[in-house]
Nucleic acid binder design. Structure first.
Length: 628
RNA sequence: GGGCCUGUAGCUCAGCUUGGAUAGAGUGCUGGACUUCUAAUCCAGUGGUCAAGGGAUCGAAGCCCUUCGGGCCCGCCA
């Protein structure tokens, strides 16, 4: 019995009692008690029935409590009425603890069958392949990757996609840099190619457009050639794109992120999927040829409201707009149209997962990366566009809610960090911009964090060899960055400050990892293997009870997080686990407990905690080092 | 002008979906705890007109309306 089973029992009993008493049906809430002194579980049914049956909440709670006493109650030891009107329950300690301990050591603990193996696509990252990933991209990547892991835990069949926009202006810009801007396509020694393209070539070329009209002229031409795909420029563009992509992926893998398939925009364009979608939209009457007004001669999507502008899909000169690349891609992800692609293996990733890529050449390999539901992780500046796509897809599928835009607010740079980039902002934070060179690269942050944690781990663990120190430092650096990017609500702006992000205390990834290392250490120092076939009744301090209770909540957290597409709930859960463990650690001695039985019982609890934490952290993509 | 998001402690944020018990963390500041399973820790104190006003409710940080402050989006660019 985890907490969920306790809730379920109380819920069904109250429902029965209320029904037997002839009360009207109300949507009452059964939830964890707000404070320990109230008990373990609370129910608000008294408040809800107060009006319909004209009794005071506490009076109703009293009646139900009396009735509850008469019923069979296996997992509830006490039913109390609070003067406020709440109905409070105390769990049967021995039954509860026994069940949490047993279930928490199971390999699949925390799993909750919400998805019933239905296919779900998560698309994230999707960074233009002309630059290195900066910390703003990291937020996207971490949200997408974490969500994918949580959905998998909630029994969805998850496919992860990364969309490579290799035919856009940004790629054209660096192609121009190499072809006409005088840049060598070999980066200076020791510099990653993506850093070189983004930090040097891209920033330089966009700056020169104003002064050198010849470069600007080349732009349109290069862009066209990239889309069409047969020219020498297109081949060169493809080569450059792939070199950048490879370096970007290295950063993603460093963060513990993997994918199933890379989708190249150029191929979507060249596959002519757009024409099929267009004809279908015309025949379904989803788009209109405007005959008058400022949009005369354009195919448009009519807006619902009067104030919102219509969205142009095809210009009066017959050329499709940007959104025309997104719509066929969205239909492809949902498997609405016949798949024009073949697939070939890009690489095998570190975790053994094969990464595929789309191709238009017939490789005789047909795979399926579509889903019944598609989640697209894009920052909320794209909300308007995503709303249009969602609407069109709904018209296509008529099934509703199959295309979900998971939006999030952007990452800005604090004024201090901006100052380090020679940018004076008068104390205000500033939006990042790849074009203007205002950003902090993900690799740099990880390197700086890694250096700091390396020194710290070495100081604390002088006995460890260097290779291990480096590994631990990297795990802590990644943990710190991933946690910082995921703990906050999606619609809050994250202001990134380099100095602040180096803090590893308090509500941080390393704090949680540290709790794990402590638990491992206890188990390591004990010469006994914990035996679980005993009674745990003696674990009855508040520190122990709290820890058991939080461990017992894991599957509920997974459910909530998956249902609400809210990855931060798992981050908070990990933090709470660590807080309760640290408190236990300081107040309750394990290895020097009063009896061998007590030592064993507490070792079991530590083991349970360790297993649960490592599973929860893995949903965040954070490794837990055993020493730090 | 329209749309989306946001405003809770000095600072950074939980809580708001689904109204209910004394509004919680981290950080900062003050003080305390290492001969002890790792002090990246723990414990105590400090700190709040939940932006403002109104409404419905027995009851509002939460729901509705208005106002104000902050951010983002609204091209026959991508």
């Amino acid at each position: 019995m985890t907490l969920r089973l306790l809730f379920d029992e109380i819920r069904s009993n109250i429902k029965k009692i209320s029904n037997d008493l002839g009360y009207p049906i109300v949507e009452f809430d059964v939830s964890e008690a707000a404070k320990p002194e109230f008990g373990d579980v609370s129910c608000n049914i008294g408040f809800l029935l107060a009006k319909p049956i004209k009794k005071r909440p506490s009076e109703i709670a009293e009646i139900i409590a009396n009735e509850y006493q008469k019923r069979k109650r296996v997992f509830v030891s006490e039913v109390n009425v609070h003067a406020s009107g709440y109905l409070n329950f105390v769990a049967n300690h021995s039954a509860f603890i026994e069940s949490v301990m047993q279930s928490s050591v199971r390999q699949d603990y925390g799993k909750f069958d919400l998805g019933q193996n239905s296919k779900i696509v998560v698309e994230h990252t999707s960074v233009n392949p002309n630059k290195a990933l900066h910390i703003g991209h990291v937020r996207n990547i971490v949200i997408g990757d974490t969500m994918a892991r949580i959905l998998h835990k909630a029994c969805y069949d998850v496919r992860i996609l990364n969309y490579v926009d290799d035919s856009g202006l940004q790629v054209a810009d660096i192609v121009i840099g190499f072809k006409y801007g005088g840049f060598d396509s070999k980066p200076p020694q020791n510099q990653k190619f993506d850093h070189y393209c983004g930090d040097t070539v891209y920033v330089n070329i966009t700056e020169r457009y104003g002064k050198e009209p010849i470069l600007a002229e080349k732009r349109t031409m290069v862009l066209k050639e990239l889309e069409e795909g047969n020219s020498e420029v297109a081949k060169f563009g493809d080569e450059i794109t792939r070199r950048v992509l490879e370096e970007q992926l290295k950063t993603c893998w460093r963060l513990g992120v993997t994918y199933d398939c890379l989708n190249f925009e150029s191929q979507i364009v060249r596959s002519r999927l757009w024409n099929v979608v267009l004809e279908k939209m015309k025949s379904m009457g989803l788009i209109y040829l405007e005959s008058e007004g400022k949009n005369a001669g354009c195919w448009v999507i009519k807006s619902d409201s009067e104030t919102e502008e219509d969205k142009i899909l095809i210009r009066s000169n017959g050329v499709a707009t940007y959104i025309a690349k997104d719509i066929p891609y969205a239909t492809w992800k949902l498997g609405i149209l016949e798949d024009p692609f073949y697939y070939k293996q890009y690489t095998v990733q570190k975790n053994g997962r094969i990464l595929w890529e789309t191709t238009l050449e017939n490789t005789e390999t047909k795979l399926n990366f579509t889903g019944d539901t598609v989640i697209t992780v894009i920052d909320s500046r794209q909300s308007r566009l995503q709303k249009i796509i969602t609407k069109i897809i709904e018209d296509f599928k008529s099934k509703g809610k199959s295309y979900v835009h998971l939006g999030y607010e952007s990452v800005t740079l604090s004024s201090d960090t901006a100052k380090n980039l020679n940018l004076e902002t008068e104390g205000k934070s500033v939006q990042m911009s790849g074009r203007k060179g205002i950003y902090v690269n993900a690799d740099s942050v990880l390197d700086i964090l890694g250096k700091k944690t390396y020194d710290e781990v070495k100081k604390r663990n002088p006995d460890l060899d260097d290779a291990l120190l480096i590994k631990i430092a990297e795990q802590v650096a990644v943990g710190a960055l991933r946690y910082a990017m995921i703990k906050q609500d999606l619609d809050k702006i994250i202001t990134f400050d380099m100095t602040e992000s180096l803090s590893l205390e308090g509500d941080t990834g390393p704090y949680i990892q540290y709790a794990y290392a402590r638990s491992v250490r206890i188990l390591e120092k004990s010469d006994k293997t914990p035996a679980f076939d005993v009674s745990f009744n003696d674990l009855n301090t508040s520190y122990e009870k709290n820890l058991v209770k939080i461990i017992g909540k894991f599957d509920i957290q997974v459910e909530d997080s998956a249902k609400n597409l809210s990855p931060k709930l798992i981050a908070r859960y990990c933090y709470d686990l660590a807080v309760y463990f640290n408190s236990f650690y300081e107040h309750v001695k394990v290895l020097t407990a009063e009896s061998p039985e007590m030592i064993n019982a507490r070792l079991c609890l530590v083991w349970s905690f360790k297993e649960t934490l490592v599973k929860a952290l893995s949903l965040l993509g954070i490794d837990a080092p055993y020493r730090m």
